[in-house]
Simulated scan of single mutants.
Amino acid sequence: MMTKLNWRKFPDEAPENDASDMEPSLCLVCVGSSIDYDWYDEYAEFDEMLNDHVGKWSEHDNDEITHWIYVDDIPLPEDEELMTLNWRKFPDEVPEKDDNFKPRLCLAGDIFSVYHDWYDEHAEFDEVLGDYVGKWSEHIVNTDVTHWIYVDDIPLPEEA
């Protein structure tokens, strides 16, 4: 059973900064017919004509984004069954590079949180094993990850 995701139409609805620390929240965003990640800061700029703050995405122009969802709203796999979306068990399965041999953007999660990252299956050479080993590139260590999904496998909103 596929879980319906809570995609929100932008700019009709915009993400709010995290209430605990007022930092921008990580979101998945629709840019055309593809999905990327970005942070939206609702206090990014002060518009003197409006006499108010104006929000901005950090990596994309506001007019590029059609829909968004908080990464924290992506449902984690339930009970090892991996029925929600197309989550895969890590390290039983590891992300593969794309056709151009570049790591593909993934969401990786433990039982509590979801992070965005890239996995390179040939990241470094392990002299003890005598072979290359993979690792997540930025935000997480291999031992923290229990499941992952390609961002490309997350269904787009119906009206995108």
Rank of each mutant, 00 (worst) to 15 (best):
T146Y: 13
D120A: 13
D98S: 06
W118A: 09
E96R: 15
T84C: 11
Y115S: 11
D73I: 01
M49V: 02
E64N: 09
D144Q: 15
D63V: 05
D52T: 02
D117S: 10
N51R: 06
V54I: 06
V94M: 02
L76T: 06
K56A: 14
D92M: 05
N62V: 04
K56N: 15
A108C: 15
N86D: 13
I69P: 14
Y132D: 10
V141W: 05
G134N: 14
N62Q: 11
V128L: 10
E59C: 00
L105D: 12
E80G: 15
L50I: 10
N62H: 12
D61K: 14
E59D: 00
H116A: 04
D92C: 02
E93F: 03
W57N: 11
L129P: 12
D47A: 08
D126Y: 08
W57A: 08
L82N: 14
T146A: 13
D98N: 11
H122I: 03
E81L: 00
R88E: 00
D73L: 04
E48R: 06
E80M: 10
S137P: 05
R88W: 00
L50P: 13
G130S: 03
E93A: 05
C106D: 01
L50C: 12
T84F: 02
L107K: 15
P77G: 07
V145W: 04
D144G: 14
W148I: 05
L82Q: 07
S58E: 12
S113F: 02
E121W: 01
N100Y: 01
P95H: 01
W68I: 00
I65Y: 07
H139E: 07
D99R: 04
N51T: 03
F90Q: 09
Y119L: 06
F46Y: 12
Y119G: 04
E80C: 02
F112A: 08
P103G: 09
D61T: 13
T143G: 11
R104I: 06
W136Q: 03
C106I: 04
E127S: 14
F90S: 01
G109D: 03
F46C: 04
R88C: 02
